[in-house]
Design a binder for these strands. Sequence first.
DNA 1: TATAGTGTTATCGG
DNA 2: ACCGATAACACTAT
Length: 270
Amino acid sequence: MPELPEVENARSVIDRAALGRRVVDVDDHDRWVCRPHPPGQIKAALLNRELTVAHRQGKSMWCETSEDGPILGIHLGMSGKIVIADPDGTEVDGGDYWERGRAAGDYRFARFALEFADGGRLMLIDPRRLGRIRLDPPIELLGPDATAITPAQFRAALARGTAPVKARLLDQHAIAGIGNLLADDILWRARVHPGRPVDELTPEMVEALLRATRFAIRTTVRDGGVHTLGSLSLRPPEARCPRDGTPTVQGTYGGRTTWWCPLEQKEGPP
DNA sequence: TATAGTGTTATCGG
DNA sequence: ACCGATAACACTAT
């Protein structure tokens, strides 16, 4: 279940193990994952090319292809992962802790695949099929990447409108790369209530949110996933603030389940 | 059997 | 046109 750190792992897997290998076959039969492309369209566009560069911005990835080929967009959705399997049995998957249940060699949920000239395969394994493969994805709509965002960009992302701050943190057009768990962690770390409208954030709160974002992104990318976030214990079965032991509270903001510490993350005037 | 889920997006209403 | 809320998407795990 990828957030930005897991997507960066996947990008690194592609960078390490897929670039420069000639594509001799493409499985693009899954009309949902490959929408809006009809089966065969992505195959025709990629056949006999190589992936040359693997990019990531927020939770979106894309690869450049050889001979001025199309851009291949890859999004992991909620349950996607990239696995590269070679004929010698080698399997590169970036060390995915969150789907250990999947037995090695179980490719039941492969929704898209590139086959290389040596018989190796790059696969999108995605049980829920909320991932996405498409040509020439609209990357220009993404906000600045959360790992590289400047203070000015961060302030601008929280500047206009009345949305709850959590909804804005999740808006990939505002900032690219913050998912539900990271958003809860950032708000908890900055001691800001998730429902506070962005136009009621004080400069001090914005500053604290920026620091918390940088900390959360930096540490989770370093750790290779969001599993080390302290705020995870805001959720059941622990469900107590790791700092003060207060029982946590649950609600919905930006359409996502949200947990917070009612003692430290208060509503109302600052 | 019912429900929630670490994500995105089309659509609707103000 | 802008902004925000909601439902829908597809499938597994509990």
